[in-house]
Design a protein around this nucleic acid. Structure first.
Lengths: 194, 194
DNA sequence: CTATGATTTCTGTAACGACAGAAACTTGGA
DNA sequence: TCCAAGTTTCTGTCGTTACAGAAATCATAG
């Protein structure tokens, strides 16, 4: 790998972190490289920059495309594919949230729905189903919220984030104004406890 | 493994998902089992229920304790350690958010801070540092928000989630009432785009 | 202080994933 | 339609991680 030190540090870090995030080292490095690059890179350039095999790069960009974190780009007069990472980091956050949800949350939700349909045949199972019900409700709430937030534009999203904890004050104000919580969906408490 | 079918499905699912979440199969299964159980279990019981080795269970509960997802519990008149998963699922979400942040975000933040201190020696590096700056700013914003939300009690948290997208309307109302955004921290835009 | 049961750490093996290089395939120009 | 450049898939090797079973350590009751 022969990169400016600043870029190299970042790329190596993403490679290491890749492990924790469920993607492999090479994939992390490719993304890091493209994220920092000021122009689309072709597979050959990536191969040289990272010192990994050509085929490995091929697999890597494919995976990143599946995550929608990287786009193919055709430069006029060049037959080779070029790759780039979208610029808008807010959009990146949305994409990440969406894809992770699809992979990590949705399968669990569907399993929970299945299991909750079955009839318990012992107190032990009844208790277990109760717990699963709690979990299901909570996840649905989180997913619904996430869906809603996805739709916000960059500015509103930033406002929301900047607001932080003072949101609770805001909630107070709102309930005073409207007398009830307008967007209310469902009650989900944690009244059960050992 | 000899468990009621409802419980078994859940446990197996968590085992499989464990891979995607950066924990191994056994650890996922142990947590699932404890989450569903209506009483603390000792290591021997876990071993039998899951059909894995005693030592594996020992390592597993240790890791779960490090994540603060499982607690040791001493039952009077029994020398053996018992383990249980906290009941309050809201608290579980908070714990997960906190721990994942510690492991997955903080190291990146600190790397970014380091690299941003260095002086770029080429236009390429200058651009790269710009991107890293954007990323750093965004992550700080997300982390700050997450910190704030951590502090909310279950009820406020649920209110916030239930609110969903209508938060943007609320934001409008607020800016009309107060004339400025009170909790404002820093401006972080994504003005750059290709 | 010793013996016994419980728990953790150590060690070797087996399974899995990452990766390079080769082979097969695809695409665009002549 | 053929050729060349580019890309993807296949295959074998290497390194890592998960795991069981054995050994060592720790804690409590007598």
């Amino acid at each position: 790998m022969l990169l400016p030190p600043v870029i190299e540090k970042f790329v190596l870090h993403f490679g290491e972190m890749g492990g924790r995030w469920g993607i492999n080292r090479t994939v992390g490095q490719i993304y890091a490289l493209l994220f920092l690059s000021d122009r689309p890179l072709n597979a050959e350039e990536i191969t040289e920059a990272l010192g990994v095999s050509r085929s490995n790069v091929s697999m890597g960009v494919k995976e990143l495309e599946a995550w929608r974190l990287v786009r193919k780009r055709h430069l006029p007069g060049d037959r080779r594919d070029h790759f780039e990472a979208p610029d808008d980091i807010w959009q990146i956050v949305r994409t990440l949230a969406e894809e992770r949800r699809k992979r990590e949350i949705d399968p669990t939700l569907s399993m929970l729905r299945d299991v909750l349909m079955e009839t318990p045949s012992s107190p032990e199972e009844r208790h277990a189903q109760g717990r699963m019900g709690e979990m299901h409700e909570l996840i649905e709430l989180l997913v619904g919220w996430s869906d809603d937030v996805q739709k916000l534009n960059n500015e509103s999203l930033m406002q929301l984030l900047t607001l932080g904890a003072s949101v609770s004050k805001l909630l107070d104000i709102k309930s005073k104004i409207s007398g009830f919580v307008g967007g209310k969906r469902r009650s989900a408490g944690s009244e059960e406890s050992s």
